[in-house]
């Protein structure tokens, strides 16, 4: 798998942006391009998108290679990311389980609770039939923000 990846590193590094529109043919792609006639135009365009991207420092490249090769530093980096993602997932799951899981216990331990009404509708029905859905959606949104922030931070750290 690592063998596969090296050409790509070269592919990113090889062209100089000042070369303008000259296209560097990629060795493994070329023979196929000759066989399939209608393919070349889209591939040239696609290649430019890929090439335009890494105006990164060599530091970023080194970080990516270290990640890929699983040096002790790279392994530590990814372990930290996994840990922080897992921790936020577990924290939010615990929050939801605590809130929803306490409902049956409350109904059980405090029967008077089920007699309460809110604008004519039993409070228990509102808590069970309506309230959980905004809660679940809200927690989902929250986790999405957290997870995307962690990933952004990770990418920023790798690239700088």
């Amino acid at each position: 798998m690592t063998d596969e990846f090296y050409p790509s590193v070269d592919g990113i590094r090889a062209p100089d942006p000042t070369l303008g529109k000259s296209v560097q043919p990629e060795p493994p792609v070329e023979p196929v391009a000759e066989v399939a006639e209608p393919e070349p135009p889209p591939r040239i365009r696609r290649q430019r998108v890929v090439l335009a991207e890494p105006s990164r420092s060599s530091g970023s490249l080194r970080a990516r290679v270290e990640l890929e090769q699983q040096t002790s530093w790279g392994e530590l980096l990814i372990k930290d990311l996994i840990k922080i993602q897992l921790r936020s997932g577990l924290a939010l799951a615990a929050l939801v389980v605590a809130l929803l899981g306490s409902l049956p216990a409350v109904f059980f331990l405090w029967p008077g609770f089920t007699e309460l009404n809110f604008v004519g509708i039993p409070l228990a029905w509102l808590l069970l039939a309506v309230a959980p859905f905004p809660l679940l959606f809200g927690v989902g949104l929250w986790y999405n923000r957290l997870a995307e922030r962690h990933e952004r931070d990770f990418v920023d750290m790798i690239e700088n």
């Binding site: 997932g89 799951a93 069970l128 959980p132 679940l136 989902g140 997870a147």
Partner: peptide, 24 residues
Amino acid sequence: GADALWYPIGFTAGYLALMLFVAA
């Protein structure tokens, strides 16, 4: 009655677990 209301909650909450631990 009220005890059946747990089904929709569980059906939906399953996606939260899926999202937190599995999706991406």
